[in-house]
Structures are given as structure tokens and as C-alpha cells.
Amino acid sequence: MFSKRFVFLILAVFVVLANLVYLAVGSKGGVPVSRLERLTIALVAPFQMAVTRTTDAVQDVWAVYFASVSAARENKMLKKALALATADQNRCRELALENQRLRKFIYFKQAEAQIMVAAKVIARDPSPWFSTMMIDKGNQDGLCKGLPVVAAQGIVGQVVAVAGRYSRVLLITDRNSSVDALVQSTRARGIVQGDNTETCFFDYALRKETVTVGDDIVASGLDQIFPKGVSIGKVVDVKKENSDLFQHVRVKTSVDFNTLEEVLVFVKQTGPTEDVRP
């Protein structure tokens, strides 16, 4: 009834459409993480780890040489800074004691200790259009999907896929990432949204709020993922358009993702809870 050519054409159109539908479902996150995916990660990640560790070792030798040259000069400066820091530390100790007294006074429980797992970055996303990275800790180390990942400088991202000894982390610079945040000085609220570059957007900050270049942006803790007060970055650009309800704010992340090697994953995260008094 139909020619071979016609059947082939229909089949080809069907295959193309089926593929586009599959891609569309995948784009909307409709395809769940399978065991086979975990297995693939577990098979490839050891090789990635070996190469990353080797290149890190070579870089370290190079860096140590240059570091020792400038160390003597830096030492003098650091001694001065240490003297100032010691004075600051004393002041902070006093404030901590005072804080403790006041907390008791208003019936607050002490925050539970955070359990953190240190992990090494072993690979980056092969696509320049997505910002994820692989770390060498997985569900065998107590990690699961959704846990916050931080570094000494600030927030790194969130665990999105976990295999036995490895996990994939979605960085805050990815377009799919968003973190509820505050301007530290003025407490103006907004959402830090990734842009696949070194800077992020600080969206939904109202025009009436004061946001200035150089302000620190910290996590608000309201998203129930990232601990409150952890640094996200600094404001580098603020634009207020007359017709807009919100300001256009750009934030430079505290963490330099190009040189990031170690991260911490918050395995158990609990904030201060208020005592209910009868």
C-alpha cells in the first residue's frame, strides 16, 4: 500500500519526534536517577580522581617554590595582622560570653553541632553551559541529595546526585541554582540566582531597599538548605531602572570556583530552636 520510501520517512519523523519529547522530559527533570547512572559515575570517577590528584601534586610543587620566595615578606605583614586579630579575638570572646548569657536569658537552646564531611573536588562539568562538579564523597560517607556544600570562603552549592563514594554538586553559579539570601548590613532580602559566569544575580531585592556596591550577601537560611549567615559574595553592580519593581544587582561569589579544591558538606544541619515555655 505504502512505498518503502514513505514508510522510512514516517519512521524517521517518528524517531525525531520521540527524541525531542524525551529531551523535553529530561529537561524538565522528569527522568529519575537510575542505578546504572550511579554505576557509571562509580566507574569513571576513580580515573578522574587519579588524574586530578596527579595534576594537583604537580601544581603544589610549583606553588610551594613560589610561596617560599614571598613567605619572608608576607611574614612581617602577617605578624602585624595577628596582633590586630588577637585584640579582635578578645573582643569576640567577650561578645560570645555575653551572647551566651543573653541566650539563656531568652530561653534559647544552644545550636546543635553541625556534622561536616570534608571532600575533594575531583572533576568539573564537561559542558561549559552547566556548573556542576564531582566530589570524592558519596552515600557511604552519609551524603544524600539536597545537602548544602560550603568552602572556607562561603557557599559552594548543593548535592544533586549521589553514588557510593562520589557525588555531583550543583554550584551556585549554575543557571538552575537559587539561594535565599540577605544583604548583611541592611537585611534586604532576595534570591541569588546563578548565571553560568563568575557572578550571580541578586534578584527580587525591592527598589526601596538600600543595596550598595561592596555589600556582603549572606544566606538567609529561609530556604532550609543553606545555613544562615554563610557568605555568598559581594555586590559588584547595582542598577535601578525607573519602571522596575526590583533592583538589578550582580554579586561576585566569595568562592573562586576555578581554584576550588576542597569543600565541606553539611551532613546534619540544625539551627537554634526556641524553647516552648508553658
Binding site: N19, Y22, G26, V31, L36, E37, D125, S127, F130, T132
Partner: peptide
């Protein structure tokens, strides 16, 4: 394609589709 899909944050099936076509 499957391996790359697993290692990347791309939408599922992106690399398989690209490579096969």
C-alpha cells in the same frame, strides 16, 4: 553519550541525542 550524561549536569539524554544524531 550515556557516560557524559551521567557525569554532567545537563538535562537527561542531551549527550546521547547529540552524539547519535
Amino acid at each position: 553519550g550515556w557516560t557524559m550524561d551521567c557525569l554532567s549536569g545537563v538535562p537527561s539524554g542531551f549527550y546521547i541525542s547529540s552524539y547519535v544524531w
